[in-house]
Simulated scan of single mutants.
Amino acid sequence: MADGKDNGQGRFVSAQAVAERAGVSRSAVSRAFTPGASIAPGTLARVHEAAAALGYQVNDLARGLLANRSRLVGLVTSDADSPFRAQMIAALSQALIERGNVPAIINIGPTTEDVANASRQLLRYRAEATVFLSGSPPESMVELTRQNGQPLILINRAETGLDSVHCDDMDGAQQAFEALSLTGASRFAVINKEDPSPSLGAREQAFAGFAVASGFKPGVVRVGHSDYDGGREAARRLLASGPAPDALFCVNDLMAFGALDHLREAGLRVPDDVSVIGFDDVPIAAWTSYRLTTLRQDPHRIAKEVVLILDRRIADPDAPPVSVYFPVELVVRETVKARR
């Protein structure tokens, strides 16, 4: 079976070629590259010397197929180029590679069928697990993956019955409301997208709930997309609907950037006239042009939790599903007025 590349003939160097050069059996080559296998030190040294000379590389794909596992872990996502999603993919990829996995990124469309197609594709490639950063697999696909022993892990999804990792959206919304309240604000608003994800919806609902409980009637504006343009459009609608808010909570940083630019173009001073808080703490939030106060999610902490859940699930496939919540941190910059 082909295992590495032969520079002379453009083919992969086989384990048999290494065995012939080292003067050992084919099985000795296999043992030399199998952790914990029994092999004499002298034989091991000859095999490694021959492998280095030929440029031999172990064929992990072939080994995975023989063991009915590929070491692939699927990362299913949409909007893979958005700042926080890109950070999350990078952190997960790093954590999985350190674990010995090969991350396979599948960028999907918005429909349930897109998610199901991604699940089927990863099953066909015998992926060790699938991590959903966007969307959620339909129940039929959940059952199919269970029958095939493939763990599914959700990030910031509200569905039950599957392992999941969540940021504490409610606590983040409370921190945002309290920070805005301390400015002396009285006209609160929150912007979101229409048909939001469970996480974005939870942030909006929690913030509005805290405002109502404190005696305020918050304005809520929902637009088509939770991106920069969506933030601009939401801010435009807010200003067109009545008096400008003096405290604005945006469910993510991208919407906050768009809102900030529109508010400033409309002649409002941030934070003197209106304080603004985002969510995620993507790198752009620290740029001089924004200096956005926001809630920080830590992608590396999320990735670490995903790997821990994956290890537990593989060790005990029948264990009850777990939901891990991690805190978010208010990062104070320059878009919130000083406390009164």
Rank of each mutant, 00 (worst) to 15 (best):
194 E>Y: 05
167 C>W: 02
49 E>N: 08
90 A>W: 01
215 G>M: 04
127 A>M: 07
199 S>M: 12
272 D>A: 14
113 E>C: 13
334 E>K: 13
321 P>S: 11
282 V>L: 11
266 A>T: 02
52 A>C: 12
253 D>R: 03
287 W>G: 11
161 G>I: 10
259 A>Q: 03
221 V>I: 08
312 R>P: 04
22 A>L: 15
137 P>M: 12
19 A>S: 00
259 A>V: 04
106 I>K: 12
97 I>L: 06
161 G>D: 14
289 S>Y: 06
109 G>F: 04
281 D>V: 03
209 G>N: 10
111 T>V: 07
285 A>N: 01
177 F>W: 04
194 E>K: 12
101 N>W: 11
34 T>G: 12
21 R>P: 00
224 G>D: 01
16 Q>A: 14
168 D>S: 05
172 G>P: 02
298 D>K: 12
339 R>S: 09
75 L>Y: 05
63 R>W: 02
188 F>W: 03
276 V>L: 10
335 T>M: 07
160 T>P: 00
261 D>M: 11
186 S>M: 08
340 R>C: 13
144 L>V: 02
294 T>H: 05
192 N>S: 12
129 A>M: 09
30 S>P: 04
339 R>Y: 03
318 D>K: 12
174 Q>D: 10
218 P>C: 15
304 K>R: 14
258 G>E: 08
6 D>S: 09
149 G>C: 06
74 G>T: 07
282 V>I: 15
273 D>F: 01
20 E>D: 13
234 A>F: 04
150 Q>I: 14
193 K>T: 06
291 R>G: 09
49 E>F: 06
336 V>Q: 10
232 R>N: 03
179 A>G: 07
207 F>H: 06
17 A>K: 02
301 R>L: 05
55 G>M: 13
108 I>Y: 01
236 R>P: 00
252 N>G: 09
271 P>F: 08
86 A>I: 02
40 A>M: 08
146 R>W: 04
239 L>Q: 00
334 E>C: 11
93 S>M: 07
283 P>S: 13
123 L>E: 14
164 S>P: 01
48 H>F: 01
37 A>S: 14
163 D>V: 09
101 N>L: 10
337 K>L: 15
216 F>R: 13
66 L>H: 11
74 G>S: 08
164 S>I: 09
121 Q>N: 11
68 N>H: 15
233 E>G: 01
338 A>P: 00
224 G>F: 02
255 M>H: 06
235 A>F: 06
